[in-house]
Design a protein around this nucleic acid. Structure first.
Lengths: 113, 113
DNA sequence: CAAAGATACATAAGTTTCCAATGTATCAGA
DNA sequence: TCTGATACATTGGAAACTTATGTATCTTTG
């Protein structure tokens, strides 16, 4: 089962930031594979969503880029900047809070009836 | 604190369906107030988001409408249709599953490091 | 009793954010 | 040699929401 795409909306940026916080340094393709692996294929980040997101994070100054060559192939490593680390904490705790609220909403029936 | 709006995206339809499942019969304005109340003002559904959503649910056959007049003022009550009840179960369990996955992703660090 | 705020519906224009499709190129294995 | 994986990127389009605006009624308060 793959989650319907609308659920990913609004969480992608947070997922990427969190992965970078946990892994110091990752490149785009690696991120897509890591998310796929960690979520047992239930979340698949498409490249059309990821790359614009990474570029946005960079232009917001939240990540820095190091380019490496593996043979002749380019690989761009992304790392959190100091402000990126702060932003990650904010986003993660906001999302955690939001999910707690949502879980309460979803469980209303069993809790109040 | 109010959640940044991108988090709501993709969950609104599920929230509305779930509220209707728990309360049998609600009207639009009531839904906005109920969500506000249950989430301690952290989720505020705007009318510009809610009414189109309700209309979409209706045209998908997931809800039925009863119109009432309170004095001269119209009030439209929404109820789940049979297929709406099934859809609610699907959407709620998908969202619950998604949030479990997300919580795992957010907690990776403390679980694996 | 007038004005403000709450109730209650609705739509339109604009933005954000993602998906699907497409493109380029390299590398590994059968 | 060709297929599939690796690795980047962009474009067009759809979906879902926000902001703004509109109409109208009812209630409360100075």
């Amino acid at each position: 089962m793959i989650y319907s795409s609308e659920l990913i909306k609004g969480t992608l940026k947070t997922i990427v930031l969190k992965l970078l916080a946990d892994n110091k340094k990752m490149y785009g393709y690696e991120i897509t594979q890591k998310v796929k692996e960690l979520t047992l294929d239930k979340i698949q980040i498409t490249e059309g969503a990821l790359y614009p997101t990474l570029h946005a994070l960079e232009s917001d100054g939240l990540v820095t880029i190091e380019t490496e060559y593996i043979g002749k192939r380019v690989r761009k490593y992304y790392s959190l900047s100091p402000s990126g680390k702060n932003k990650t904490k904010e986003k993660v705790s906001e999302l955690a809070d939001f999910m707690e609220t949502m879980q309460f909403l979803l469980d209303i029936k069993t809790k109040t009836v």
